[in-house]
């Protein structure tokens, strides 16, 4: 039973990673940038939800919606102010700017909400599910997390494959120049991707804080790095890859914690990533693009 419990916990944590990794991978796929501020958008989402529930006394669902709306707006503003002027700049300049944005968000949160951890109210209130005469207990938040991840995945897949905007996104990530010639507004498409990614980060933030209910200005950093790892693990730029990478990473992390060592779990997670990349240098589902000379 302990194996099943660990597996379920792993899938739940992995689902959160997957949602965050989706944001990373979409932004990377289209803008070819490592958005290190993504993890901090998670934190902002968590705080927004926390404030709505705690101070305004609204139901959790309102908090989630507000967090998504707020983070989407934040994503658009950040993209417009900090990343848009750097479209032609070398990628390292954009990377450093993203790090600047990350510091900015963390320290703004520190000023607004303070350094002491906030106890996050549980986002779901229905009881946990008991199976096999109570030997296997599945927390309600675990179920909600997995359902949310599946929902997000389906919605995103439909969006990218069926809608016009989604097609434009795929076209831009394939070849920006050709997309522009076909009349696609590349600039607006990139902004759109940032908006979607930030909205997803908000959902991930609420789920993450519900599962691990302490909220500090640096809450988003480590999950951000892990999710980034997950995106690379699955093949960065690939949406199914991000989902697969996220879930696998979550399972590996919880399994390592349960069966090997709690302290060394991070080392094991990153170790597995390195081994996978050495065997498949473009990640699990990534395509290796041959260089043309």
């Amino acid at each position: 039973m302990s194996f099943l419990t660990a597996l379920i916990n792993g899938i739940s944590l992995g689902s959160v990673y997957a949602i965050i990794a989706l944001g990373y991978t979409m932004v990377y796929g289209i803008a070819k940038m490592l958005n290190f501020a993504h993890g901090d958008v998670i934190m902002v989402g968590g705080y927004l939800c926390f404030c709505t529930v705690q101070y305004l006394g609204l139901p959790t669902l309102a908090g989630v919606i507000l967090a998504v709306v707020g983070c989407t707006a934040l994503g658009i503003v950040v993209e417009g102010l900090a990343y848009k002027p750097l479209r032609q700049a070398p990628s390292l300049a954009v990377l450093i700017t993203a790090i600047g944005v990350s510091y900015f968000l963390q320290n703004s949160a520190l000023l607004i909400w303070g350094a002491d951890p906030k106890a996050f109210p549980s986002a779901v209130s229905f009881p946990s599910v008991k199976l096999f005469d109570g030997q296997l207990i599945i927390n309600s938040i675990t179920i909600v997390t997995v359902l949310a991840a599946v929902l997000v995945m389906v919605a995103l897949t439909l969006f990218t494959s069926r809608t016009k905007m989604g097609k434009a996104m795929r076209a831009c990530s394939e070849d920006k120049g050709a997309a522009q010639l076909m009349g696609i507004n590349v600039d607006r498409t990139i902004s759109m991707v940032f908006a979607i990614g930030s909205g997803l980060a908000a959902i991930a933030g609420v789920l993450l804080c519900s599962a691990y209910p302490t909220l500090t200005p640096t809450t988003g950093s480590m999950p951000g790095i892990k999710a980034f790892t997950a995106a690379v693990f699955g093949g960065i730029g690939s949406i199914p890859g991000a989902a697969l990478g996220g879930v696998l990473l979550g399972i590996i992390e919880i399994m390592a914690k349960t069966y090997i060592s709690t302290q060394l779990s991070d080392a094991i997670v990153f170790g597995v990533l390195i081994i996978v990349l050495l065997i498949k240098p473009a990640g699990l589902l990534g395509k290796l693009v041959p260089e043309k000379v």
Binding site: A82, P85, A89, T97, G100, V101, F104
Partner: peptide, 12 residues
Amino acid sequence: AIVLIAVMLVSN
């Protein structure tokens, strides 16, 4: 953080 972003924006 603001200095960092500003320097990157100006120098590029």
